Computed example of a mutant assay.
Amino acid sequence: MPNNERLPHEKMRFQLVLRRRGISDQAVLRAMEGIPRELFVEASDRVYAYRDTALGIPCGQTISQPFVVAYMTEQLRLDPRHRALEIGTGSGYQAAILSRLCHEVVTLERFKTLAETARRRLAATGCDNVEVVLGDGFDVPANLGTFDRIMVTAAMEEIPKALLERLEPGGILIAPVGPHNDGQVLVRVRRGEEGYDSENLVAVRFVPALPGLAREL
């Protein structure tokens, strides 16, 4: 079967896999169905776009497996009024999913190549409520303000206090936390009236989040 004829079948199976693995938020499932994942992977990997696996992208980064994208998105409990921050744009796929579920998305990427490619992909898919910023996820520009939701899509050894402070009261942050050379735990943090409450969710493995802008690419 030619590759372009296989995609609809793979996409249908991908939705079934998400449901079987416990994704139940209908808004998240609709967003996952509506965003063409094949446009956010490398051309040579398009036949694999809807398989439940991470895929490599330039600059030594990855596009997360669909279940992880859906699970992290569901755990944020997004509302159409929310303003969301993503640390680690990568391919732009996660930002595209978020764009269908909240009012505004700001996504930071330290690699210029990835930021530029993501801008083109997001524009092509009509995600006009996403702003891609070339920047350092450990030093979010002050002019970007605060956010109702924050998602970190690369592993941090600990969540910086400065990032937590960008959460609005009642806000939620989700991030993979743990050593860069091993697995991590997905942590959800809520900002309450008197501080922050954290909860460990599931074991994950992400590429490391590094400070500063990338010197190359």
Rank of each mutant, 00 (worst) to 15 (best):
A84L: 14
R6P: 00
E158F: 10
N129K: 04
H180N: 08
I87Q: 05
E165L: 14
S91C: 01
A84D: 08
N143I: 15
G178K: 06
S91F: 04
F111R: 05
L16D: 07
E109W: 15
V177N: 09
P141I: 13
P141F: 14
E193M: 09
A54H: 01
S198N: 13
L114V: 07
V207Y: 10
G126K: 08
L163R: 13
N181T: 07
N181V: 06
A43H: 07
N129I: 03
I159P: 01
I35S: 00
A115W: 15
D25K: 07
G135C: 03
P2M: 04
G137C: 08
L29G: 00
R81G: 11
F138S: 06
R190S: 12
A214M: 07
G126S: 09
K161S: 10
P8A: 10
E42L: 10
V132Y: 10
R21G: 03
P36V: 14
I150V: 01
R190I: 09
A115S: 02
D79V: 09
E168Y: 08
I150W: 05
G60R: 15
F67I: 12
T107M: 04
V133N: 07
D45P: 00
L55N: 02
G192D: 05
G92S: 03
A203E: 13
R21W: 08
M72P: 00
A54Y: 01
L213C: 04
A214D: 13
I57Y: 05
V17E: 11
E74F: 06
R190P: 02
M12I: 15
I57L: 13
I97K: 09
E131N: 12
I87F: 05
R100V: 05
G135H: 05
N200L: 14
G88N: 04
Q94P: 02
I172N: 04
T53R: 15
A209L: 15
E104P: 06
E165T: 13
R30A: 02
Y48S: 01
L98V: 06
A154K: 08
I174F: 06
L55I: 02
A96V: 06
Q94Y: 10
E131G: 03
M12E: 11
F14N: 07
E193C: 03
E86K: 08
S99P: 08
A49H: 11
G192V: 10
R83T: 07
L18S: 00
G34E: 07
I63P: 00
V69I: 11
L98A: 04
M1W: 08
F40G: 12
V187S: 03
S198R: 15
E74Y: 02
P58Y: 05
Q15P: 03
V106H: 09
R77Q: 11
E38H: 09
D79L: 11
N143R: 15
P8I: 10
E109R: 15
P179R: 13
L163C: 03
V105H: 00
H9G: 04
P36K: 13
A115G: 09
E104S: 15
G92F: 09
V132P: 06
A49W: 10
A154P: 02
V105F: 01
I150G: 02
I150F: 02
V68C: 04
H9I: 13
P80W: 14
L55T: 03
V47D: 00
R166A: 13
R191E: 02
R149D: 02
